[in-house]
Design a protein around this nucleic acid. Sequence first.
DNA 1: TAAGATTGAGCATTCAATCTTG
DNA 2: CAAGATTGAATGCTCAATCTTA
Lengths: 153, 153
Amino acid sequence: MYCSCVNKLRAERTEDLIALLIALVHGGRITEARFDAALEAVGLSLPKWHALKQILAVEEPPTLRLLATQLGCVKSNATQLVDRLAADGLVRRTPDPDDRRSILIEVTDEGRRRYEAGTRAIAAVEEELLEGFSCAERQELSGLLRRLEVRWG
Amino acid sequence: MYCSCVNKLRAERTEDLIALLIALVHGGRITEARFDAALEAVGLSLPKWHALKQILAVEEPPTLRLLATQLGCVKSNATQLVDRLAADGLVRRTPDPDDRRSILIEVTDEGRRRYEAGTRAIAAVEEELLEGFSCAERQELSGLLRRLEVRWG
DNA sequence: TAAGATTGAGCATTCAATCTTG
DNA sequence: CAAGATTGAATGCTCAATCTTA
């Protein structure tokens, strides 16, 4: 018997499980909201910051296809995210000289400045959010989340 | 010194923190996606199921205002969620006899059946998602998430 | 036909403005 | 004017269909 929970009544146990996973969804959402609030001060959002991070992470300007893969989303989402970033003047679309079907995404100077300011804003919020957690607890949480992602991601 | 992490280089430590919190956001998202996939089979989504749960949780049909409070969202979101639920025939708007500004939200018979089917679908997915986690680990994760919510929520 | 990108429709969410009623 | 509800615009995401190029 792998878990002593089975001694509980079935209904209670189900409630506990729902509570646990709903808490995980909720925890993710409030974390995202905190990041967004911090990034708003520099004119970014978490998806926008994350996209800039991925574009800057590769040597050559990535295609939309590659960006979507890096972000773990569908192509059309990357298209629209780049639309919004371009409207903000943070990225630029350039044609791919090697394949006329593709376009390459470049980060502008302003985009790079914004990304760096965003990274500082994020770091500050992280300190605040994890303030009450010991190193062991952080590693525990990190390990559990990593296992979730490996199993389900 | 509350955490041995401080011995790491600043840059590495920041990366670890980002990784942890991004993992939390990601874990919440993939959990939500799994719930949504399971609920799709019964014609629901996680927000719709959650709304039905909250409406059924109170004695008297709640106002939109109360529903928004229960769901932890703004009024306009509750309005539109109820729009979609009503379009599906799962809830019904009725005027509040005590205050002509308010409307009350009632769950239809079909709505109640859908909610119960959704609850069974969710329970099945939960078993699957938490299969590899011991009771102690579940309690650990639950406790950490609860502390996050208390501190940030 | 395949692949890269875009567009259109829909869900879920927020904020700001508005309309009705208290 | 306050409060309840709605509407419109925006962000962010999905899927299905389309357009262009390989």
